[in-house]
Design a protein around this nucleic acid. Sequence first.
DNA 1: TCCCATCATGGTAGCGCTAACACAAAGATC
DNA 2: GATCTTTGTGTTAGCGCTACCATGATGGGA
Lengths: 383, 383
Amino acid sequence: MPEKLKRVYVKAMKMQDSDTKLPRRRAARRGNSAPTIGDVAREAGCSPMTVSRVINGEANVREQTRELVLEAIRKLNYAPNRAARSLAGGEQLRIALMFDNPSASYLSEFLMGALEEASRNDIHLEVQRCESAEEALSIMGKLAKEGIDGFILPSPLCDDQKVLDLARELDAVSIAVGPGKAEGLHGAVMIDEFQAAYDMTKHIIDLGHERVGFIIGNPEQIASGRRLNGFRAAMLDAGLTPDEELIVQGRFTYRSGMAGAERLLSVHPQPTAIFASNDDMAAATVAVAHRKHLDVPNDITVCGFDDTAMASTIWPELTTIRQPIREMTAWAVTAIARIIRSKRTDGRAKPQQKILPYTLVRRESDAAPSLARGSANSLLSDR
Amino acid sequence: MPEKLKRVYVKAMKMQDSDTKLPRRRAARRGNSAPTIGDVAREAGCSPMTVSRVINGEANVREQTRELVLEAIRKLNYAPNRAARSLAGGEQLRIALMFDNPSASYLSEFLMGALEEASRNDIHLEVQRCESAEEALSIMGKLAKEGIDGFILPSPLCDDQKVLDLARELDAVSIAVGPGKAEGLHGAVMIDEFQAAYDMTKHIIDLGHERVGFIIGNPEQIASGRRLNGFRAAMLDAGLTPDEELIVQGRFTYRSGMAGAERLLSVHPQPTAIFASNDDMAAATVAVAHRKHLDVPNDITVCGFDDTAMASTIWPELTTIRQPIREMTAWAVTAIARIIRSKRTDGRAKPQQKILPYTLVRRESDAAPSLARGSANSLLSDR
DNA sequence: TCCCATCATGGTAGCGCTAACACAAAGATC
DNA sequence: GATCTTTGTGTTAGCGCTACCATGATGGGA
């Protein structure tokens, strides 16, 4: 063993010598001299190969050696060079993150989750905005021709049948983020929309509300139906028959939320709570309520869904459901990587699905119904 | 020349031969066999080096050769391997994108601009969220120790003196995005906040308004003062003396916007227009106006600043100023790269500054003042 | 006791690309 | 015409890392 060590050292010394002879070469090549696997090896007294094994957590390294290497890494503050790694590894995954909804407040979460995970796994992420499903189709086609390995399709793209069809056709791996008909795709991450809506409804009921209004989301998105079903089920389970007059159609937009809220608030007796299928519509509901001089939450409880920036920007801040968007995209990225790998090895890979937990974020827009109910609308004070 | 070509061909053939002898090697190494620079060279009948030159747009390549190579590239659908490129290039820039403001609607634009540019230039981007200036400080310290090359500091981080001080101390290159005191930093990108506010004010005045209210932004951010000054200057230039009662302090938050709007709308005679220093405050102003049964824009014009998602979500959609956030971050990334390079070559680099053009986005929240002014508040119809 | 698995490690040969130099051919300069 | 430049191209030697095999040391079963 010492014999070998010596050999390594000698080689290292020789390299340094030749450096002295040709100083320009190395100095010019690498601007900042970050420590390499070789430096670590010299420090730990082993070969670069062993260091590589330790870094990659491979088996067959003696515990003692591993410790030595780890200490050397810590001492030199070594970090592996990604470029070299993926070059030598030979694997170069490219996956595209498509998104519609350019103003979606969850976009930042969405990007962050994907980005972080991609950089951790040396995956090249291509972020693609598209204004419409049609544009998505053409972009996907182009990328597929360039040989992209996978697509991440967030809602509402994964609600679009044409997009789904195309994704199925291409031989890239596609994963939906959000409640899509994942059939044909290679996987999907989502929360349990039904249960989340159920929980929120139950939360409202537990507060004491009996007349609860509901604004449905865009009928073209699958989430809308699931949320509505959750609402209905919770009402029924609480022994309350949902008043069909208090269930109105919306389209996930602020505008549609305003219209819905206007309708709901002109029903008699008025609902004491309104559960909107997303935050934009909930915010619109708050605005309409305020215009009618109803105080939120004292005269009326308003709850949203999604926990977008809107929810915590307006006043009062909205009680809503938070989706773990970041974890969802992170999972999507790793899942794609996993599927592609197993596809390259075994040939085929079975689709994966993941349901992540949501959170009911309670803020300031809900309260027990006021006792003096009915026509008594307390005037909103100026502050 | 034909003599040389032949040599190249021969070599290429030999390579293929050895491939045949050791088929596992290459096949196993690279999963998908993307064309390499060598394939292009063979196709074009020249050396890989020449192909490299063409790709990198270097001089000293005959026009005819360049065409040949370009055609080969097109034919093979070749795309350079990023990993190999940055490995061989020896340069590995790592820059951190710090951000506070987690709910900032411009975050997605912000990320997109940076991401795109970073991937174009093979720069490794590290996205870092921080909840506070303190956290930013500690993160920056940690990253600096890890040897990061640069920081991108968007507002409000670049308004914080401590952050600025730290950035100056570290030997990474820091660039502000937004109106910071860029002194000491290596550069800044921004729009002309003064002129933008001036233009918006002028737009409002040109509509016929004379009593224009203004809600100032967070006093700790430099943009606030500049926007205020722009407002004042435009009023003065139009021969209108700004009524000090109609200039109220805000803090860029929705809540502060509500308070400001309440104050402004209780002044007599009421202003016929309110210019809020950002969209959140403008949205709050719309909400307050609605609560007072003032129609926007017929009874009162409300304008914002920034063109965040909020501006185009609420109803009516806000007339506002759009900053070219995407271009700004893109510029920041390339500027950092440029500065670092010239720092490594010449030793020192002069700071860079860039002012990008903004746009006044006219939507539905502004109109000429109604003729029946004063106490006549037309009731808002239900739709 | 010998042989063959098994383990821990080292050596070698690239991954795809570019920096640096080499070199021949064609002008430019005296 | 001899020398120096310039121009267009090729050759060589890596960048930092990992796949693949080779090797030497162990250990158990024949």
